[in-house]
Design a protein around this nucleic acid. Structure first.
Lengths: 130, 130
DNA sequence: CATAGTGTATTATTTAAGTAATACAGTAGA
DNA sequence: TCTACTGTATTACTTAAATAATACACTATG
């Protein structure tokens, strides 16, 4: 697996790793029980300390998205529908929070924000289905 | 003007100040050219260093929301409302598009997405105003 | 039982953000 | 010009988060 990490973005490395792997698991690119890249694989690819990667995986395990097996490796967890739904919602909520913050700074109100969200989603769906 | 600051919320003081004053200006509670509370007024009210308040005002000036006049005071800027609102919506639309794309990949539907957007905005607003 | 892979606990270092101290700079009005 | 307000640049301190160093622990396989 290839990760795209920006060392100068201000976003912590371990978070960038988490976000990308979480997305792969939730979206189904990585399947249940599939082995994930080892800590040292990623740490040498990204040129970062192994513990930084281990930290990312530790959080993902807490989220229930994978299992860590010392001496063996890392494996995508089986996601029940509800787990998947919960995590997907959480992921989207996180990202929406940042945008909502911007919206507030710019003086938008709740109705405007929700309206835009609805419209944008509609447009995208339409585009994907044609 | 009375500000409600929580010293233990984890949200930086200068940001709390920014958010509350920004809201007053954008919502029209404070009118164009109206003088804002002095740096020392707020710093003694909040029991914080004057530079912390000055920092908040400096950012708000960068946002174009007020003018700082050394030796005189701080004054709400005139807002070209229609232009501002248009730009804000465009910016927010852009960012929402990315999130909506992820949401679609993760299997969320429009109702769920819009619902989350609405809730997130609500929560943020509540947090900022308490 | 040696080896070459796995992941990790503990500790230390680095970095960035927030806040404060201090001294300074501008304006208005008596 | 003196006074009493304004805001601010520079520097230093504090704290928490992110990252790294090191040494260790587990597992599979020949």
């Amino acid at each position: 697996m290839l990760l795209h990490i920006n060392h100068h973005s201000g976003i912590p490395i371990y978070r960038q790793v988490m976000d990308q792997i979480r997305y792969q698991i939730l979206s189904g690119v990585i399947e249940e029980s599939e082995q994930l890249p080892s800590v040292r694989d990623l740490s040498s690819q990204i040129k970062v300390n192994p513990m930084t990667i281990s930290k990312a995986y530790a959080f993902l395990e807490m989220e229930g998205l994978l299992d860590r097996r010392r001496g063996v490796g890392l494996f995508a967890a089986g996601l029940t529908k509800s787990t998947k739904k919960t995590n997907s919602s959480a992921l989207v909520t996180d990202k929406l929070e940042k945008v909502a913050n911007d919206a507030i700074s710019l003086g938008l109100n709740r109705e405007q924000f929700t309206q835009i969200a609805n419209d944008v989603f509609n447009d995208l769906e339409a585009k994907n289905n044609k």
